[in-house]
Design a protein around this nucleic acid. Sequence first.
RNA 1: GGAGGUGUGGCUGAGUGGUUGAAGGCAACUGUCUUGAAAACAGUCGUAUGGGAAACCGUACCGUGAGUUCGAAUCUCACCACCUCCGCCA
Length: 422
Amino acid sequence: MLDIKFIKENPDIIKEAVEKKNLSFNVDELLALEEKRREALALFESLRTEQNTLSDKIPQAADAEERTAMIEALKPLKEKVQEAEENVRVIMKEWQVLMLQVPNIPDMSAPIGPDESANVVQKTWGEKPAFDFEPKDHIEIMTALGMADFERGVKVHGFRGYFLKDDGVRLCFAIWNYALEFWSKRGFSPVMPPVITKREPLMGCGFIPQGEEDIYRAQDGSYFVGTSEVPLMGMYMDEVLSVEQLPIKMLGFSPCYRLEAGSYTKDIKGLIRVHEFYKMEQVVLCAASHEESVRLHEEINANTEAFIESFGIPYETMVNATGDMGLSKVKMYDINLWVPKEETYREISSASYFHDFQTRRLGIRYKDTDGKLRYAHSLNCTAIPTPRILVSLIENFQQADGTIRIPEVLRPYLNNQEYIGK
RNA sequence: GGAGGUGUGGCUGAGUGGUUGAAGGCAACUGUCUUGAAAACAGUCGUAUGGGAAACCGUACCGUGAGUUCGAAUCUCACCACCUCCGCCA
């Protein structure tokens, strides 16, 4: 959500953002409604003032008769006040619906384009493995090594189900333990949040109302969130932080649930696109400064790049086009890992900053050094998603004999084994 | 699951339906005093929004939402959260 004052003063900037993000939102409609809202509010307030003034005089009535007369005289006004109040309420509802659709302003440095085809490669790293044999995909390798069971996964869960087993599980734990240390050293405090949440945190982060169809929901109306970003941001909802606390750097670790509605024909096999997975996520709250947001955005993205580099997996970092970054983001990077069998890069991480778009919806403020209350800025970036990371890791490090070479940094977490499957 | 209770400002804690946006205390801030500090004393001290150059004025907010009333922190209903006891479970 943006500040209505900013929207009123800069309608052209919003219109430009709508266009850049390839959305259909009518800014003029909102501005007209805002005008209506202000008029309705002014009417209600003046009627209320009149009512309050007259009402306050009643206790000073000389006798019971005068008192009754005064009350009777106020009854028609009461109805007018109620009518005006109801009118404000109706307009406010409409107003809020529109306000939730106003996009955040993309940064100047974001490439302009309607969708992901306009994303720009910013960096490529690593050497793609040259195999002297026909490389297999992760499904074949993991199944052969007993690391995963996809057929039984589908039997139990249905479409996109999977079991991780034995070395598949051990490898995940090794990655988690390594990641926990890696990010702890970088000043992130690990958090395991509730992933079943109320509506508000999802609304605050911008997953609702847009994107509601992709979220699992329980009988009691609560939601199973798709990322720990949601509860971690919700953690400080409606709070006033002190400036000394900032920046708050958290490493969320949680299961993630995604309905993947509308992507039935995409990535139907393996661990790329699943309904439930685990993810470590960097979430940051910082002071309300663009420079600070930019600095931290580079930092959290560089963290994930460094983490991947320590494995030695080739990757590319993309700057996402304005049309591919959704309503709420100012700028977004994706990190894609090399998948040899497919001869393409697959997304593994996404780093975004939001300015105060999320914190305004969530009511996360802090008292600045000048004593003023300001909405904090928020950012997030995937640290490591499991089991998706296994796809690239296993396929890049597969050996001719069907075993997997373990990256050196992970070996201390796997009894110093060099290979899986030997 | 059953029974009862509570929810007021940064914290604590009053609040018979009528100048209560809310006493008192703590904390914080400013000043006096002091070489400096502490103590003492005096003053300031919620948020949002509309109007105004400003002083200031209006409106809303006492867990959330609706209702009763001329008027609601105070009464009614629903929801949310917390506490106590009983039962059940890990």
